[in-house]
Design a protein around this nucleic acid. Sequence first.
RNA 1: GGCUCGGUAGCUCAGCUGGUUAGAGCGUGGGAUUCAUAACCCCAAGGUCGGGAGUUCAAGUCUCCCCCGAGCCA
Length: 537
Amino acid sequence: MPFTLTTPLYYVNDRPHLGSTYTTLACDAIARFQRLQGQQVEFITGCDEHGQKIQRTAAAAGLTPQVHCDAVSARFRDLWHSWQISNNHFIRTTEPRHRAIVEQFFARVEANGDVREGRQQGWYCVACEEYKDDPAAATDPSCPVHQRPLEWRDEMNLFFRLSRYQEPIERLVASPDFVSPASRQREVQNFVAGGLKDFSISRLDVPWGIPVPGHEGHTFYVWFDALLGYLSALLQNDDPPDLELAISRGWPADLHVIGKDILRFHAVFWPAMLLSAGLELPKRVFGHGFLTREGQKMGKSLGNVLDPELLLERCGPDAVRWYLLRDIPFGDDGDFQQQRFSDLVNNDLCNTIGNLLNRTTSMARKWFDGGVPPAGAALKTSHPLAITAAAASAQFDDAMAALEFRGAAESLLRLAETANGYLNTQAPWKQMKQPGQEAAVGADLYAVLEVSRSLAVLLAPLVPDLSARMLSQLGQPALVSGADRETGDVVTTESGLATTESGSTWHPVRQWGLLRPGDPLPEPVPVMQRLELDSPL
RNA sequence: GGCUCGGUAGCUCAGCUGGUUAGAGCGUGGGAUUCAUAACCCCAAGGUCGGGAGUUCAAGUCUCCCCCGAGCCA
């Protein structure tokens, strides 16, 4: 069974922003972590492209919806590519195969008696694509989120009988692992406890949508259509658009990572839809927080949006990935602070980790004939640094499995600090000046080199590029954690080292003592450039 | 208005079922050192734990009230 993981399917109303980048980066780290452990991963992202809002946005720009969607979704695709996101699926809900999946799914739901006609009356926010029930301000209501006037709607729609699923959904959201973090779970439980009402799944007079079979004039409500994108995404390129086939490719999802604003759709509506169609439920829905910038909401009106493309260009992928994953507790809201960003990147990545590698390879080359020193006593797993490294790596795994990127990063930092401290205590540069100490110095350096290698190996899911650069400084090949893992080719490690565990690029290189004494080390080059941000991003 | 979270050093946060002088990292100040990306290592200053009352031998940690921030629902 593959590990199936999704980002939200991003709405193509606007260009990608930092929030979607954050979600996607986090998912990428998870995907890489799973792959490195030998899991086959189906990593899904894509775009949600239907709905009245898109229709209007396109019209306002003088474009047809299709042209608009093509342009914006290409932008998402390109952005993920330039961030080296390792998704192996990218679904657009305007693809023909998706339409077919939606039709098949709907047929199941309808056959199950869960579709009825009903009158939908109320104030509608096109920006939210949602009805707002706010009888209090009925005179001149506006959307609390978008601060735009609501539109009065009164039409016959198709409804999904969500109310039938009150009990199973209650049970589902009460189970401890389904919705996380815990604070969000309570939120969802309260919502469900309030009683589930049928919700409309079609719209009249919204041509930019998938027509509802057998219901002239109706198109599917964007959310109904969008959620199903997770299923159609699973189809491989040459697959016929068949729901059963899609399912066999990796359903149910192991994890939906979403922003907290769309929790209800994923934790309540979506599971009910799946139950109705007789499909398995996703195992986990994780609602992460939002990013602010220097304490303020990012928005066009404030003119303080942080453009992911610019950020990437000026700072590189590693810096941003590290900062976002390391500093913001995953699940909580976070604040992007430029000073802190550069402080943490420079401290953690350049000073603590990068410099550790740099100083150690430099000494090893200088005193041991340009290569890895004789290991001596440092080859034993009972070496203090070997013990510390093993503990750190166990902590790292636990934290990553729990989606606690921050804790994972910290375990690595502590390891690097220990190694730096070890060097300062042992002071090989002093010891080298005394006769007969080469063996002792060699062992110390070897141990620290091994710590550096461990760090490089463990960093792979969080900052794959940096990991590769570090390994290269150690004369080792990069780990393959990206979507190219999907080819199934067994990746040989390096220099004849054991590659026993099939399918895993990680376990074979996670043992202590794999560096071979005498192997040459390349000339030390800083693996991480310091961030010198003299102007605001 | 109801419900739910949070308010701990300048900043980001740890502090489990209440129990020695409240912790970490960053930032700041000082020291040591030279292998290294002005890096590393060590030390220090800095908090009446949002405010008030209560329970207790003992409260950041429990109860109540209030203030502030965020969110969900009305």
